[in-house]
């Protein structure tokens, strides 16, 4: 008894909304540029302040928001399906908490006399995320296989340890470092430059390429590891692929944008509640949905409080939370099957 919307319709609506959202985002900002002049400015390369603001500040940021949203949502969807656990997100394999620990350590310890400038922090975060995933993976491995339950529990344990580490760093840090750590954890795309976008693409693209075509395999995994194996799915290889793909995608996303929460957890659920759990449609729709959510949240974050910035992590939760709750209350019954 499901009263769901057709998969295709939702996917097409999301896909159609993306270019509209991109145009709206490009037309808004603290530096006012008339939205209808934007095509002319870009096309004719009218050199001037407006052109530089658009090209060097606004566009890289919009581009990165789209990518980061896609990466977070897609890996969230893949991990939820793999763990067969609705609460799973990229945090569970340790990538977010590892990145947060490394970033906090960088701010509290190395930040004081860093000469590496703007690159040290994202590099540290990315390395920390990847290292933690590797650790989780190695520890969860038993006799050549990696049982999903063990992986989940190992992830939870390492999360707790990373949390303690961050707490310790907060304790040791002075007021300014504390502020740096807090702001990093709330996430933000304010520092985006084209070089940062290109650098983020290096892990993001392989991550997305690994995750995107997994719909059919994830559908089989949903039945259980053993059942999937009997359906001809190489469970261990798929698991490895999901963990590696998520680590790269989320690691890149978090390194570039800080600890943006909520996107990976909630966007897949929104789609499941609306349509159902068929991963062949879930993965692409979630990817586009995540891009939309983060694009919207980031646009709000750079315009609502101008000339200041609102941390984007607050806004993803603020925008997505009530909508998710509304969906949940409307589809209470179906939620149990999701």
């Amino acid at each position: 008894m499901t009263r769901t919307v057709p998969y295709k319709l939702v996917f097409l609506i999301l896909l159609a909304a993306l270019p509209i959202a991109l145009c709206v985002a490009a037309g808004m900002g603290a530096y006012s540029i008339a939205p209808f002049r934007i095509p002319a400015i870009l096309w004719d390369r009218i050199e001037g302040e407006g052109y530089r603001v658009l090209l060097y500040i606004r566009l890289p940021r919009i581009f990165l928001a789209t990518l980061v949203g896609t990466a977070l949502a897609l890996s969230g969807a893949a991990l939820q399906s793999m763990f067969r656990n609705p609460l799973a997100d990229s945090g569970l394999i340790g990538v977010s908490s590892g990145a947060a620990l490394a970033a906090s350590a960088w701010i509290a310890l190395a930040g004081a006399d860093s000469r590496i400038g703007l690159w040290g922090l994202p590099t540290a975060a990315f390395a920390g995320g990847l290292a933690t995933v590797w650790l989780v993976w190695r520890m969860a491995r038993t006799n050549g296989a990696t049982p999903t339950a063990t992986l989940l529990l190992t992830g939870i344990a390492l999360n707790a340890i990373a949390g303690a580490g961050i707490g310790l760093l907060i304790y040791c840090s002075d007021e300014e470092e504390l502020r740096g750590i807090t702001f990093w954890q709330l996430g933000g795309l304010n520092g985006t430059t084209w070089p940062l976008v290109w650098a983020a693409l290096i892990p993001l693209v392989p991550g997305l390429v690994l995750l995107a075509p997994l719909g059919r395999a994830l559908n089989a995994l949903a039945l259980g590891d053993r059942e999937a194996y009997h359906l001809g799915v190489h469970v261990a290889a798929i698991q490895r692929r999901i963990v590696l793909g998520s680590a790269l995608a989320v690691g890149g996303a978090v390194a570039a944008a800080g600890g943006v929460g909520f996107v990976g957890l909630v966007v897949p659920h929104m789609f499941r509640l609306l349509c159902g759990a068929d991963n062949r449609w879930l993965l692409p729709s979630t990817a586009v949905g995540g891009a939309l959510l983060l694009l919207g949240a980031d646009t709000a974050s750079r315009t609502l409080a101008q000339p200041a910035e609102l941390p984007v992590g607050i806004l993803t939760a603020l925008a997505g939370g009530p909508f998710f709750l509304w969906l949940l209350l409307r589809h209470k019954r179906e939620a149990f099957h999701a």
Partner: peptide, 19 residues
Amino acid sequence: AVPGMKGYKELNAEAAVAA
């Protein structure tokens, strides 16, 4: 340069140019 701004807030990159 940013009259009316109080406290201690993260600077928006575009707002810096606008100021």
